[in-house]
């Protein structure tokens, strides 16, 4: 977990007192984590952006209406809203979305890769997009644990409680997820290099 000078809880307090900059900091701090979690469930960039917006609208309303529970932690609460939004989307749609390939053109525009060549930027974007695609292809139980631990920052204990398995099972699923991804990324990188630099 990243360490910040001002905690989420302090920012929420400031926001409750009308400090909009505190909310901006909270949003900046967590936007990628929330967006990635939603995206990995719905697999569609536009739907993910809509749901990201709905998630934060709920956050804003709950805090401004004074209904935010001070005892809970902000991040798990935020991630729970995002996760539920994405799952509800499935239920409403009653379908599993088709996989949409990304062109990656605007995804990384806010990141700074100023010293990189266009080619290395493209390689990096392709690699990241491929990794997200591979996460979506993982068996559901592995994908669930990986998302919960890595992007939602739940502990293995919390994951075990939420998914009704032992900690060892949760850890085992995480291990297989990481091993599978590593193996597939290695294969992808070899194939990618051969495509870009044919012998």
């Amino acid at each position: 977990m990243e360490k910040y000078k001002i905690s989420d809880s302090q920012l929420v307090s400031l926001y409750k007192n009308g400090n909009e900059e505190a909310f901006e900091q909270l949003l900046t701090r967590h936007k990628s984590r929330v967006f990635t979690t939603i995206y990995l469930i719905v697999k569609d960039n536009y739907v993910a952006e809509d749901l990201l917006q709905e998630t934060f609208v709920k956050v804003v309303r709950t805090i401004k209406e004074g209904r935010y529970n001070e005892e809970g932690k902000f991040l798990p609460w935020l991630m729970r809203i995002a996760h539920n939004m994405a799952i509800d989307y499935f239920r409403k749609e009653k379908r599993y979305p088709t996989i949409i390939m990304e062109d990656g053109s605007h995804v990384f525009t806010t990141l700074e890769f100023s010293e990189d060549s266009i080619e290395s930027k493209q390689v990096r974007q392709d690699t990241h997009a491929k990794l997200r695609e591979l996460i979506q292809e993982l068996p559901e139980s592995q994908k669930e644990v990986l998302m919960m631990r890595h992007y939602m920052e739940m502990s293995f204990q919390e994951i075990a409680e939420n998914t009704g398995v032992s900690i060892n099972t949760a850890l085992g699923r995480m291990r297989y997820a990481l091993i599978n991804l590593r193996k597939k990324m290695k294969q992808f990188n070899i194939a990618y290099d051969q495509n870009i630099y044919p012998k």
Binding site: S32, L52, Q53, T109, T110, H150
Partner: peptide, 23 residues
């Protein structure tokens, strides 16, 4: 773990501004 961090997606500025304006 580092690769997973790098693979995080960034939402567009448009959607972020829209959330901030709503707030």
């Amino acid at each position: 773990k580092a690769d997973l961090n790098k693979a995080k997606k960034v939402p567009s500025d448009k959607v972020i501004n829209s959330i901030l304006n709503y707030s």
